[in-house]
Design a protein around this nucleic acid. Structure first.
Length: 553
DNA sequence: CGTATTTGACCGGCGC
DNA sequence: GCGCCGGTCAAATACG
Protein backbone atom coordinates (compact mmCIF):
# COMPACT_ATOMS: atom_id res chain seq x y z
CA UNK A 1 0.00 0.00 0.00
CA UNK A 2 1.12 3.41 -0.73
CA UNK A 3 1.72 5.94 1.88
CA UNK A 4 -0.32 8.35 -0.07
CA UNK A 5 -3.40 6.51 0.97
CA UNK A 6 -3.03 7.20 4.58
CA UNK A 7 -1.70 10.63 4.04
CA UNK A 8 -4.61 11.54 1.92
CA UNK A 9 -6.90 10.12 4.48
CA UNK A 10 -5.36 12.11 7.24
CA UNK A 11 -5.25 15.33 5.36
CA UNK A 12 -8.68 15.19 3.92
CA UNK A 13 -10.29 17.24 6.56
CA UNK A 14 -7.33 18.80 8.18
CA UNK A 15 -5.87 21.54 6.07
CA UNK A 16 -2.94 21.96 8.34
CA UNK A 17 -1.58 18.58 7.35
CA UNK A 18 0.49 18.59 4.24
CA UNK A 19 -0.56 15.90 1.86
CA UNK A 20 2.83 14.92 0.61
CA UNK A 21 5.10 14.66 3.53
CA UNK A 22 7.36 11.64 3.70
CA UNK A 23 6.34 8.62 5.70
CA UNK A 24 8.65 8.99 8.59
CA UNK A 25 7.58 7.77 11.97
CA UNK A 26 4.66 6.10 10.41
CA UNK A 27 2.58 3.55 12.13
CA UNK A 28 1.70 0.67 9.96
CA UNK A 29 -1.77 -0.59 10.40
CA UNK A 30 -1.81 -4.12 9.14
CA UNK A 31 -5.41 -4.13 8.15
CA UNK A 32 -5.27 -0.90 6.31
CA UNK A 33 -1.91 -1.70 4.97
CA UNK A 34 -0.74 1.82 4.91
CA UNK A 35 1.21 3.88 7.36
CA UNK A 36 -0.67 6.32 9.44
CA UNK A 37 1.60 9.00 10.68
CA UNK A 38 0.25 10.23 13.89
CA UNK A 39 3.38 11.82 15.18
CA UNK A 40 3.99 13.46 11.88
CA UNK A 41 0.56 14.82 11.90
CA UNK A 42 1.31 16.47 15.12
CA UNK A 43 4.65 17.72 14.00
CA UNK A 44 3.12 19.37 11.07
CA UNK A 45 1.01 21.36 13.33
CA UNK A 46 2.76 24.60 13.91
CA UNK A 47 2.76 24.25 17.65
CA UNK A 48 3.35 20.66 18.32
CA UNK A 49 7.05 19.98 17.80
CA UNK A 50 8.19 22.74 20.00
CA UNK A 51 5.74 21.84 22.68
CA UNK A 52 6.78 18.27 22.84
CA UNK A 53 10.36 19.17 23.45
CA UNK A 54 9.64 21.95 25.86
CA UNK A 55 7.30 19.97 27.92
CA UNK A 56 9.85 17.28 28.44
CA UNK A 57 12.31 19.90 29.45
CA UNK A 58 9.99 21.57 31.82
CA UNK A 59 8.71 18.45 33.33
CA UNK A 60 12.22 17.40 34.17
CA UNK A 61 13.16 20.51 35.98
CA UNK A 62 9.85 21.64 37.31
CA UNK A 63 8.30 18.98 39.40
CA UNK A 64 5.18 20.97 39.94
CA UNK A 65 4.20 20.11 36.41
CA UNK A 66 2.89 16.64 35.91
CA UNK A 67 5.65 14.58 34.35
CA UNK A 68 5.00 12.72 31.17
CA UNK A 69 4.56 9.55 33.06
CA UNK A 70 1.71 11.05 34.95
CA UNK A 71 0.30 12.41 31.78
CA UNK A 72 0.28 8.97 30.38
CA UNK A 73 -1.68 7.85 33.32
CA UNK A 74 -4.14 10.61 32.91
CA UNK A 75 -4.36 10.24 29.21
CA UNK A 76 -6.77 7.33 28.95
CA UNK A 77 -9.29 9.07 31.06
CA UNK A 78 -9.12 12.14 29.01
CA UNK A 79 -9.49 10.17 25.87
CA UNK A 80 -12.50 8.47 27.21
CA UNK A 81 -13.96 11.74 28.27
CA UNK A 82 -13.46 13.27 24.90
CA UNK A 83 -14.96 10.38 23.14
CA UNK A 84 -17.93 10.51 25.38
CA UNK A 85 -18.36 14.15 24.76
CA UNK A 86 -18.24 13.89 21.05
CA UNK A 87 -20.54 11.11 20.11
CA UNK A 88 -22.01 12.75 17.06
CA UNK A 89 -19.06 14.22 15.34
CA UNK A 90 -15.87 12.52 14.38
CA UNK A 91 -14.03 14.06 11.59
CA UNK A 92 -11.36 11.96 10.01
CA UNK A 93 -8.93 14.39 10.87
CA UNK A 94 -9.53 16.22 12.76
CA UNK A 95 -10.29 19.49 14.18
CA UNK A 96 -8.55 18.32 17.20
CA UNK A 97 -6.61 21.19 18.51
CA UNK A 98 -9.50 23.41 19.35
CA UNK A 99 -12.35 21.09 19.88
CA UNK A 100 -11.91 20.21 23.47
CA UNK A 101 -9.33 22.55 24.69
CA UNK A 102 -11.52 23.96 27.33
CA UNK A 103 -12.40 20.69 28.85
CA UNK A 104 -8.84 19.55 28.73
CA UNK A 105 -7.63 22.65 30.36
CA UNK A 106 -10.20 22.26 33.00
CA UNK A 107 -8.54 19.07 34.03
CA UNK A 108 -5.44 20.99 34.97
CA UNK A 109 -5.52 23.09 38.03
CA UNK A 110 -4.85 26.76 38.24
CA UNK A 111 -1.42 28.38 38.15
CA UNK A 112 0.27 30.41 40.84
CA UNK A 113 2.73 32.66 39.11
CA UNK A 114 2.97 33.73 35.51
CA UNK A 115 5.95 31.52 34.97
CA UNK A 116 4.30 28.59 36.53
CA UNK A 117 1.19 29.31 34.59
CA UNK A 118 3.19 29.32 31.46
CA UNK A 119 4.63 25.98 32.23
CA UNK A 120 1.35 24.63 33.32
CA UNK A 121 -0.22 25.85 30.18
CA UNK A 122 2.40 24.13 28.15
CA UNK A 123 2.10 20.96 30.05
CA UNK A 124 -1.59 21.22 29.58
CA UNK A 125 -1.03 21.52 25.92
CA UNK A 126 1.17 18.51 26.08
CA UNK A 127 -1.57 16.58 27.73
CA UNK A 128 -3.93 17.85 25.17
CA UNK A 129 -1.68 16.82 22.36
CA UNK A 130 -1.28 13.40 23.78
CA UNK A 131 -4.98 13.20 24.09
CA UNK A 132 -5.19 14.13 20.50
CA UNK A 133 -2.78 11.42 19.62
CA UNK A 134 -4.86 8.93 21.45
CA UNK A 135 -7.92 10.19 19.79
CA UNK A 136 -6.34 9.96 16.42
CA UNK A 137 -5.37 6.44 17.23
CA UNK A 138 -8.92 5.71 18.11
CA UNK A 139 -10.14 7.30 14.94
CA UNK A 140 -7.70 5.39 12.87
CA UNK A 141 -8.89 2.25 14.49
CA UNK A 142 -12.40 3.19 13.64
CA UNK A 143 -11.42 3.82 10.11
CA UNK A 144 -9.77 0.46 10.05
CA UNK A 145 -12.94 -1.11 11.23
CA UNK A 146 -14.98 0.67 8.66
CA UNK A 147 -12.63 -0.32 5.96
CA UNK A 148 -12.73 -3.91 7.04
CA UNK A 149 -16.49 -3.78 7.15
CA UNK A 150 -16.72 -2.45 3.66
CA UNK A 151 -14.20 -4.95 2.45
CA UNK A 152 -16.05 -7.72 4.14
CA UNK A 153 -19.27 -6.51 2.65
CA UNK A 154 -17.85 -6.67 -0.80
CA UNK A 155 -16.36 -10.03 -0.15
CA UNK A 156 -19.67 -11.31 1.11
CA UNK A 157 -21.39 -9.88 -1.91
CA UNK A 158 -18.84 -11.51 -4.11
CA UNK A 159 -19.40 -14.85 -2.48
CA UNK A 160 -23.11 -14.39 -2.76
CA UNK A 161 -22.73 -13.67 -6.43
CA UNK A 162 -20.68 -16.73 -6.95
CA UNK A 163 -23.31 -18.81 -5.26
CA UNK A 164 -26.04 -17.30 -7.38
CA UNK A 165 -23.93 -17.81 -10.44
CA UNK A 166 -23.75 -21.49 -9.84
CA UNK A 167 -27.43 -21.73 -9.12
CA UNK A 168 -28.40 -19.72 -12.15
CA UNK A 169 -25.99 -21.67 -14.24
CA UNK A 170 -27.78 -24.88 -13.53
CA UNK A 171 -31.19 -23.34 -13.97
CA UNK A 172 -30.45 -21.50 -17.16
CA UNK A 173 -28.59 -24.36 -18.66
CA UNK A 174 -31.71 -26.41 -18.33
CA UNK A 175 -33.89 -23.60 -19.62
CA UNK A 176 -31.68 -22.94 -22.54
CA UNK A 177 -31.66 -26.52 -23.55
CA UNK A 178 -35.40 -26.80 -23.35
CA UNK A 179 -36.67 -23.43 -24.48
CA UNK A 180 -33.95 -21.84 -26.48
CA UNK A 181 -31.99 -24.94 -26.99
CA UNK A 182 -31.28 -24.60 -30.62
CA UNK A 183 -30.39 -20.96 -30.69
CA UNK A 184 -28.54 -20.97 -27.46
CA UNK A 185 -26.54 -23.98 -28.37
CA UNK A 186 -25.12 -22.07 -31.22
CA UNK A 187 -23.71 -19.56 -28.86
CA UNK A 188 -23.10 -21.62 -25.80
CA UNK A 189 -22.78 -25.12 -27.06
CA UNK A 190 -23.74 -26.08 -23.60
CA UNK A 191 -24.09 -29.74 -24.16
CA UNK A 192 -20.80 -30.17 -25.90
CA UNK A 193 -18.90 -28.00 -23.55
CA UNK A 194 -17.42 -26.09 -26.42
CA UNK A 195 -16.99 -22.40 -26.32
CA UNK A 196 -17.82 -20.92 -29.66
CA UNK A 197 -17.99 -17.51 -28.09
CA UNK A 198 -15.04 -17.59 -25.89
CA UNK A 199 -14.01 -14.16 -26.93
CA UNK A 200 -11.94 -12.95 -24.13
CA UNK A 201 -9.40 -14.30 -21.85
CA UNK A 202 -9.45 -11.70 -19.20
CA UNK A 203 -6.69 -12.93 -17.10
CA UNK A 204 -4.86 -10.63 -14.83
CA UNK A 205 -2.18 -9.90 -17.33
CA UNK A 206 -4.54 -8.85 -20.05
CA UNK A 207 -3.52 -11.62 -22.32
CA UNK A 208 -4.70 -12.27 -25.77
CA UNK A 209 -8.07 -13.67 -26.48
CA UNK A 210 -8.47 -17.34 -26.41
CA UNK A 211 -9.42 -18.83 -29.67
CA UNK A 212 -11.76 -21.67 -30.05
CA UNK A 213 -10.14 -24.15 -32.28
CA UNK A 214 -12.52 -26.89 -31.43
CA UNK A 215 -15.43 -25.64 -33.39
CA UNK A 216 -15.95 -27.62 -36.48
CA UNK A 217 -16.69 -26.02 -39.78
CA UNK A 218 -20.25 -27.20 -39.77
CA UNK A 219 -21.01 -25.91 -36.32
CA UNK A 220 -19.21 -22.69 -37.00
CA UNK A 221 -21.12 -22.18 -40.14
CA UNK A 222 -24.37 -22.88 -38.43
CA UNK A 223 -23.50 -20.55 -35.64
CA UNK A 224 -22.47 -17.82 -37.95
CA UNK A 225 -25.52 -18.04 -40.05
CA UNK A 226 -27.74 -18.00 -37.06
CA UNK A 227 -25.91 -15.23 -35.37
CA UNK A 228 -27.19 -12.52 -37.57
CA UNK A 229 -30.88 -12.78 -36.78
CA UNK A 230 -30.15 -13.28 -33.18
CA UNK A 231 -28.05 -10.22 -33.07
CA UNK A 232 -30.70 -8.35 -34.84
CA UNK A 233 -32.94 -9.31 -32.03
CA UNK A 234 -30.40 -7.98 -29.64
CA UNK A 235 -30.34 -4.75 -31.51
CA UNK A 236 -34.08 -4.35 -31.28
CA UNK A 237 -34.11 -5.16 -27.63
CA UNK A 238 -31.29 -2.84 -26.87
CA UNK A 239 -32.83 0.04 -28.67
CA UNK A 240 -36.16 -0.55 -27.11
CA UNK A 241 -34.69 -0.54 -23.69
CA UNK A 242 -32.27 2.24 -23.99
CA UNK A 243 -33.88 4.32 -26.62
CA UNK A 244 -30.67 5.94 -27.58
CA UNK A 245 -27.55 5.34 -29.48
CA UNK A 246 -24.75 4.07 -27.35
CA UNK A 247 -21.96 3.82 -29.82
CA UNK A 248 -20.24 7.10 -29.40
CA UNK A 249 -21.85 9.70 -31.54
CA UNK A 250 -22.14 7.60 -34.57
CA UNK A 251 -25.37 7.73 -36.45
CA UNK A 252 -27.25 4.58 -37.10
CA UNK A 253 -25.87 4.32 -40.54
CA UNK A 254 -22.43 4.10 -39.16
CA UNK A 255 -23.32 1.57 -36.58
CA UNK A 256 -25.23 -0.64 -38.88
CA UNK A 257 -22.79 -0.35 -41.65
CA UNK A 258 -19.94 -1.01 -39.31
CA UNK A 259 -21.72 -3.99 -37.87
CA UNK A 260 -22.54 -5.52 -41.14
CA UNK A 261 -19.15 -4.67 -42.42
CA UNK A 262 -17.42 -6.38 -39.58
CA UNK A 263 -19.68 -9.33 -39.69
CA UNK A 264 -18.76 -10.05 -43.20
CA UNK A 265 -15.19 -9.31 -42.59
CA UNK A 266 -15.21 -11.64 -39.70
CA UNK A 267 -16.89 -14.43 -41.49
CA UNK A 268 -16.15 -14.20 -45.16
CA UNK A 269 -16.37 -17.92 -45.67
CA UNK A 270 -17.24 -21.09 -43.91
CA UNK A 271 -13.99 -21.25 -42.08
CA UNK A 272 -14.62 -19.49 -38.88
CA UNK A 273 -12.77 -20.67 -35.80
CA UNK A 274 -9.64 -18.78 -35.01
CA UNK A 275 -9.80 -15.79 -37.26
CA UNK A 276 -13.45 -15.39 -36.47
CA UNK A 277 -12.96 -15.48 -32.78
CA UNK A 278 -10.07 -13.10 -32.88
CA UNK A 279 -11.85 -10.65 -35.06
CA UNK A 280 -15.03 -10.94 -33.09
CA UNK A 281 -13.25 -10.47 -29.86
CA UNK A 282 -11.37 -7.55 -31.19
CA UNK A 283 -14.52 -5.92 -32.39
CA UNK A 284 -16.16 -6.11 -29.04
CA UNK A 285 -15.61 -2.55 -28.03
CA UNK A 286 -15.82 -0.54 -24.91
CA UNK A 287 -16.35 3.16 -25.02
CA UNK A 288 -15.29 5.29 -22.15
CA UNK A 289 -16.76 8.70 -21.87
CA UNK A 290 -14.83 11.02 -19.63
CA UNK A 291 -14.51 14.70 -19.30
CA UNK A 292 -11.05 15.70 -20.22
CA UNK A 293 -9.34 18.75 -21.52
CA UNK A 294 -6.50 16.65 -22.77
CA UNK A 295 -6.61 15.32 -26.30
CA UNK A 296 -6.37 11.82 -24.99
CA UNK A 297 -6.98 10.21 -21.64
CA UNK A 298 -3.95 8.65 -20.07
CA UNK A 299 -4.69 5.02 -19.51
CA UNK A 300 -1.19 3.78 -18.92
CA UNK A 301 -0.62 2.34 -22.35
CA UNK A 302 1.53 3.66 -25.13
CA UNK A 303 -0.32 4.58 -28.26
CA UNK A 304 0.71 5.60 -31.68
CA UNK A 305 -1.58 7.60 -33.80
CA UNK A 306 -2.04 6.10 -37.19
CA UNK A 307 -4.90 8.00 -38.61
CA UNK A 308 -7.44 10.69 -38.24
CA UNK A 309 -10.70 11.06 -39.99
CA UNK A 310 -13.65 13.31 -39.95
CA UNK A 311 -16.52 11.15 -38.93
CA UNK A 312 -19.93 11.86 -40.23
CA UNK A 313 -22.16 13.69 -37.83
CA UNK A 314 -19.41 15.05 -35.67
CA UNK A 315 -17.39 18.15 -36.39
CA UNK A 316 -14.62 16.83 -34.22
CA UNK A 317 -12.13 14.56 -35.90
CA UNK A 318 -11.75 11.00 -34.83
CA UNK A 319 -8.24 9.88 -34.09
CA UNK A 320 -7.09 6.32 -34.43
CA UNK A 321 -4.45 4.91 -32.17
CA UNK A 322 -2.85 1.53 -31.84
CA UNK A 323 -1.04 0.14 -28.87
CA UNK A 324 2.70 0.23 -29.25
CA UNK A 325 3.68 -1.40 -26.03
CA UNK A 326 4.34 -4.62 -27.86
CA UNK A 327 4.88 -5.53 -31.45
CA UNK A 328 1.72 -6.79 -32.96
CA UNK A 329 -0.55 -5.81 -30.14
CA UNK A 330 -4.01 -5.79 -31.67
CA UNK A 331 -5.47 -3.22 -29.32
CA UNK A 332 -6.63 -0.05 -30.93
CA UNK A 333 -8.62 2.82 -29.79
CA UNK A 334 -10.51 5.68 -31.24
CA UNK A 335 -10.62 9.04 -29.59
CA UNK A 336 -13.19 11.59 -30.45
CA UNK A 337 -14.83 14.43 -28.71
CA UNK A 338 -18.51 14.35 -28.20
CA UNK A 339 -20.33 16.49 -30.67
CA UNK A 340 -22.85 17.63 -28.11
CA UNK A 341 -20.37 18.34 -25.39
CA UNK A 342 -16.85 19.03 -26.51
CA UNK A 343 -15.54 18.54 -23.03
CA UNK A 344 -16.44 14.89 -23.16
CA UNK A 345 -13.82 12.68 -24.64
CA UNK A 346 -15.04 9.39 -25.99
CA UNK A 347 -12.41 6.73 -26.12
CA UNK A 348 -13.35 3.46 -27.72
CA UNK A 349 -11.13 0.51 -26.99
CA UNK A 350 -10.98 -2.49 -29.17
CA UNK A 351 -9.13 -5.71 -28.64
CA UNK A 352 -7.08 -7.28 -25.92
CA UNK A 353 -3.47 -6.66 -25.21
CA UNK A 354 -1.12 -9.48 -26.04
CA UNK A 355 1.50 -8.37 -23.59
CA UNK A 356 1.85 -7.71 -19.90
CA UNK A 357 0.53 -4.41 -18.85
CA UNK A 358 2.10 -1.97 -16.48
CA UNK A 359 0.17 -1.35 -13.32
CA UNK A 360 -0.94 2.00 -14.57
CA UNK A 361 -2.57 0.39 -17.54
CA UNK A 362 -4.22 -2.44 -15.73
CA UNK A 363 -7.25 -0.53 -14.61
CA UNK A 364 -8.41 0.65 -17.95
CA UNK A 365 -7.39 -2.49 -19.78
CA UNK A 366 -9.06 -4.72 -17.28
CA UNK A 367 -12.09 -2.54 -17.20
CA UNK A 368 -12.56 -2.52 -20.90
CA UNK A 369 -11.85 -6.19 -21.13
CA UNK A 370 -14.24 -6.97 -18.35
CA UNK A 371 -16.90 -4.80 -19.86
CA UNK A 372 -16.46 -6.43 -23.21
CA UNK A 373 -16.50 -9.83 -21.64
CA UNK A 374 -19.61 -9.09 -19.67
CA UNK A 375 -21.20 -7.61 -22.68
CA UNK A 376 -20.50 -10.55 -24.87
CA UNK A 377 -21.10 -13.30 -22.45
CA UNK A 378 -24.10 -11.66 -20.93
CA UNK A 379 -26.01 -10.10 -23.73
CA UNK A 380 -25.39 -12.68 -26.31
CA UNK A 381 -26.00 -15.74 -24.29
CA UNK A 382 -28.82 -14.83 -22.04
CA UNK A 383 -32.24 -13.39 -22.20
CA UNK A 384 -31.23 -11.21 -19.32
CA UNK A 385 -28.69 -9.44 -21.37
CA UNK A 386 -30.88 -9.27 -24.36
CA UNK A 387 -33.94 -7.97 -22.69
CA UNK A 388 -32.29 -5.75 -20.19
CA UNK A 389 -28.97 -4.37 -21.24
CA UNK A 390 -28.89 -2.14 -18.25
CA UNK A 391 -28.15 -5.17 -16.21
CA UNK A 392 -24.72 -5.01 -17.60
CA UNK A 393 -24.57 -1.37 -16.95
CA UNK A 394 -25.49 -1.93 -13.38
CA UNK A 395 -23.02 -4.69 -13.10
CA UNK A 396 -20.23 -2.53 -14.31
CA UNK A 397 -21.38 0.58 -12.63
CA UNK A 398 -23.63 -0.50 -9.84
CA UNK A 399 -23.96 3.00 -8.55
CA UNK A 400 -26.02 4.14 -11.44
CA UNK A 401 -27.87 2.43 -14.15
CA UNK A 402 -27.36 5.39 -16.38
CA UNK A 403 -23.62 5.48 -16.22
CA UNK A 404 -23.05 2.48 -18.41
CA UNK A 405 -25.01 1.74 -21.49
CA UNK A 406 -24.97 -1.26 -23.64
CA UNK A 407 -25.20 -1.38 -27.35
CA UNK A 408 -25.99 -4.68 -28.88
CA UNK A 409 -26.79 -3.13 -32.20
CA UNK A 410 -23.99 -4.99 -33.84
CA UNK A 411 -22.60 -8.48 -33.79
CA UNK A 412 -19.73 -6.90 -31.94
CA UNK A 413 -21.56 -4.71 -29.51
CA UNK A 414 -20.22 -1.86 -27.54
CA UNK A 415 -20.58 -1.02 -23.94
CA UNK A 416 -20.22 2.58 -22.97
CA UNK A 417 -18.88 3.51 -19.59
CA UNK A 418 -20.00 7.00 -18.91
CA UNK A 419 -17.65 8.56 -16.44
CA UNK A 420 -18.96 12.02 -16.98
CA UNK A 421 -21.75 11.72 -14.45
CA UNK A 422 -21.35 12.44 -10.81
CA UNK A 423 -24.55 11.40 -9.15
CA UNK A 424 -23.27 11.19 -5.63
CA UNK A 425 -23.06 14.34 -3.57
CA UNK A 426 -20.57 12.73 -1.25
CA UNK A 427 -18.03 12.52 -3.95
CA UNK A 428 -15.92 15.56 -4.07
CA UNK A 429 -15.33 17.05 -7.41
CA UNK A 430 -11.97 16.51 -8.88
CA UNK A 431 -10.60 19.17 -11.11
CA UNK A 432 -11.18 18.92 -14.77
CA UNK A 433 -7.72 17.61 -15.27
CA UNK A 434 -7.02 14.90 -17.77
CA UNK A 435 -8.66 11.72 -16.74
CA UNK A 436 -6.36 9.58 -14.72
CA UNK A 437 -6.83 6.04 -13.70
CA UNK A 438 -6.27 6.06 -9.97
CA UNK A 439 -2.99 4.36 -9.64
CA UNK A 440 -0.21 5.73 -7.65
CA UNK A 441 3.34 5.49 -8.82
CA UNK A 442 5.34 2.75 -7.36
CA UNK A 443 2.30 0.97 -6.19
CA UNK A 444 2.27 -2.78 -6.47
CA UNK A 445 -0.95 -3.44 -8.28
CA UNK A 446 -0.73 -6.85 -9.65
CA UNK A 447 -4.19 -8.20 -9.87
CA UNK A 448 -2.75 -11.61 -10.13
CA UNK A 449 -1.47 -11.55 -6.62
CA UNK A 450 -3.02 -13.39 -3.79
CA UNK A 451 -5.11 -10.46 -2.72
CA UNK A 452 -8.67 -10.68 -3.80
CA UNK A 453 -9.47 -8.46 -6.71
CA UNK A 454 -12.32 -6.88 -4.89
CA UNK A 455 -10.09 -6.02 -2.03
CA UNK A 456 -7.57 -4.63 -4.43
CA UNK A 457 -10.20 -2.70 -6.18
CA UNK A 458 -11.28 -1.19 -2.98
CA UNK A 459 -7.76 -0.58 -1.90
CA UNK A 460 -6.97 1.07 -5.15
CA UNK A 461 -10.04 3.12 -4.83
CA UNK A 462 -9.15 4.02 -1.34
CA UNK A 463 -5.84 5.30 -2.46
CA UNK A 464 -7.45 7.95 -4.43
CA UNK A 465 -10.86 8.54 -3.07
CA UNK A 466 -11.37 7.35 0.42
CA UNK A 467 -10.39 10.72 1.66
CA UNK A 468 -13.52 12.03 0.13
CA UNK A 469 -15.74 10.10 2.46
CA UNK A 470 -17.39 11.99 5.19
CA UNK A 471 -17.33 9.57 8.02
CA UNK A 472 -18.08 11.82 10.89
CA UNK A 473 -21.69 10.96 11.33
CA UNK A 474 -21.66 7.24 11.45
CA UNK A 475 -18.42 7.07 13.33
CA UNK A 476 -19.37 9.66 15.78
CA UNK A 477 -22.77 8.27 16.49
CA UNK A 478 -21.83 4.78 17.37
CA UNK A 479 -18.36 3.85 16.38
CA UNK A 480 -16.63 5.95 18.93
CA UNK A 481 -17.89 4.23 22.00
CA UNK A 482 -15.61 4.51 24.99
CA UNK A 483 -13.09 1.79 24.85
CA UNK A 484 -9.42 1.08 24.88
CA UNK A 485 -7.29 3.42 22.85
CA UNK A 486 -6.56 0.66 20.38
CA UNK A 487 -9.50 -1.64 20.43
CA UNK A 488 -9.47 -4.79 18.40
CA UNK A 489 -11.79 -5.09 15.53
CA UNK A 490 -15.22 -5.60 16.87
CA UNK A 491 -17.89 -6.80 14.55
CA UNK A 492 -20.32 -6.26 17.36
CA UNK A 493 -20.77 -2.66 16.36
CA UNK A 494 -23.57 -3.58 14.13
CA UNK A 495 -26.14 -0.87 14.71
CA UNK A 496 -24.31 1.52 12.46
CA UNK A 497 -22.66 -1.01 10.30
CA UNK A 498 -25.36 -1.01 7.71
CA UNK A 499 -25.37 2.71 7.49
CA UNK A 500 -21.66 2.88 7.54
CA UNK A 501 -21.23 0.35 4.84
CA UNK A 502 -24.04 1.83 2.87
CA UNK A 503 -22.62 5.29 3.02
CA UNK A 504 -19.16 4.13 2.25
CA UNK A 505 -20.35 1.89 -0.54
CA UNK A 506 -22.41 4.67 -1.99
CA UNK A 507 -19.53 7.03 -1.99
CA UNK A 508 -17.15 4.44 -3.25
CA UNK A 509 -19.27 3.12 -6.03
CA UNK A 510 -20.11 6.57 -7.17
CA UNK A 511 -16.57 7.15 -8.10
CA UNK A 512 -15.67 6.43 -11.68
CA UNK A 513 -12.26 5.36 -10.67
CA UNK A 514 -13.61 2.83 -8.31
CA UNK A 515 -16.04 1.52 -10.81
CA UNK A 516 -13.24 1.09 -13.21
CA UNK A 517 -11.17 -0.74 -10.70
CA UNK A 518 -14.14 -2.72 -9.58
CA UNK A 519 -14.79 -3.77 -13.10
CA UNK A 520 -11.18 -4.75 -13.31
CA UNK A 521 -11.58 -6.81 -10.22
CA UNK A 522 -14.66 -8.46 -11.62
CA UNK A 523 -12.77 -9.19 -14.74
CA UNK A 524 -10.08 -10.81 -12.72
CA UNK A 525 -12.63 -12.96 -11.01
CA UNK A 526 -14.24 -13.98 -14.21
CA UNK A 527 -10.91 -14.36 -15.87
CA UNK A 528 -9.84 -16.67 -13.14
CA UNK A 529 -12.99 -18.66 -13.62
CA UNK A 530 -12.29 -18.76 -17.29
CA UNK A 531 -8.90 -20.12 -16.76
CA UNK A 532 -9.90 -22.47 -14.03
CA UNK A 533 -12.69 -23.97 -16.04
CA UNK A 534 -10.63 -24.25 -19.12
CA UNK A 535 -12.84 -21.96 -21.07
CA UNK A 536 -15.93 -24.01 -20.96
CA UNK A 537 -19.26 -22.44 -21.34
CA UNK A 538 -19.81 -22.19 -17.65
CA UNK A 539 -18.13 -18.87 -17.81
CA UNK A 540 -20.65 -17.39 -20.09
CA UNK A 541 -23.29 -18.23 -17.62
CA UNK A 542 -21.11 -16.99 -14.89
CA UNK A 543 -20.88 -13.57 -16.37
CA UNK A 544 -24.51 -13.52 -17.13
CA UNK A 545 -25.45 -14.47 -13.65
CA UNK A 546 -23.19 -11.87 -12.28
CA UNK A 547 -25.04 -9.26 -14.16
CA UNK A 548 -28.37 -10.56 -13.00
CA UNK A 549 -27.25 -10.66 -9.46
CA UNK A 550 -26.04 -7.14 -9.56
CA UNK A 551 -29.25 -6.03 -11.05
CA UNK A 552 -31.19 -7.55 -8.27
CA UNK A 553 -29.43 -5.49 -5.66
C1' DC B 1 18.89 11.05 -37.13
C1' DG B 2 15.32 8.45 -35.10
C1' DT B 3 10.69 8.67 -33.76
C1' DA B 4 6.09 10.33 -33.75
C1' DT B 5 2.54 12.73 -36.11
C1' DT B 6 0.06 14.35 -40.05
C1' DT B 7 -2.60 13.70 -43.95
C1' DG B 8 -3.94 12.29 -48.39
C1' DA B 9 -4.62 7.96 -50.73
C1' DC B 10 -6.39 3.58 -50.68
C1' DC B 11 -9.42 -0.40 -49.53
C1' DG B 12 -13.59 -2.83 -48.59
C1' DG B 13 -18.44 -2.85 -47.50
C1' DC B 14 -22.88 -0.99 -48.01
C1' DG B 15 -26.86 1.52 -49.95
C1' DC B 16 -29.03 3.40 -53.79
C1' DG C 1 -21.84 0.54 -60.95
C1' DC C 2 -21.13 4.44 -58.29
C1' DG C 3 -20.70 7.13 -54.34
C1' DC C 4 -20.40 7.29 -49.40
C1' DC C 5 -18.30 5.96 -45.34
C1' DG C 6 -15.23 3.99 -41.85
C1' DG C 7 -10.92 2.29 -41.29
C1' DT C 8 -6.10 1.73 -42.54
C1' DC C 9 -1.73 2.60 -44.86
C1' DA C 10 2.28 5.02 -45.80
C1' DA C 11 4.85 8.93 -47.49
C1' DA C 12 5.73 13.44 -45.96
C1' DT C 13 6.53 16.29 -42.26
C1' DA C 14 7.53 17.79 -37.56
C1' DC C 15 9.99 17.33 -33.46
C1' DG C 16 13.45 16.38 -29.92
Amino acid sequence: MDKGWGLTLDTSSSPSFPSNHPPTNDTMFPLLGFPVNLSRASKDDHQTPKLLGEVDFFSDRNKSTPPPSLLHHVKPHIVKKEIDETPLHVNTGLQLLTANTGSDQSTVDDGLSSDAEDKRAKSTELAHLQVELQRMNAENNKLKEMLSHVTGNYTALQMHLMTLMQQNQRTESTENEVVQGKVEDKNHDIGGGKVPRQFLNIGPSGTTAEVDDQVSDSSSDERTRSSTPQNNNIEVAARNNNGKTEREESPDSESQGWAANKLQKVNPSNSVDQSTSEATMRKARVSVRARSEAPMISDGCQWRKYGQKMAKGNPCPRAYYRCTMAVGCPVRKQVQRCAEDRTILVTTYEGTHNHPLPPAAMAMASTTTAAASMLLSGSMSSADGIMNPNLLARAILPCSSSMATLSASAPFPTVTLDLTHNPNPLQFQRPAAPFQVPFLPGQPQNFGSGVTPIAQAQALYNQSKFSGLQLSQEVGSSQLAPQAPRPPLQPSQQPSLADTVSAAATAITADPNFTAVLAAAISSIIGGAHNANNNNNTNNNTSRTTISSFSGN
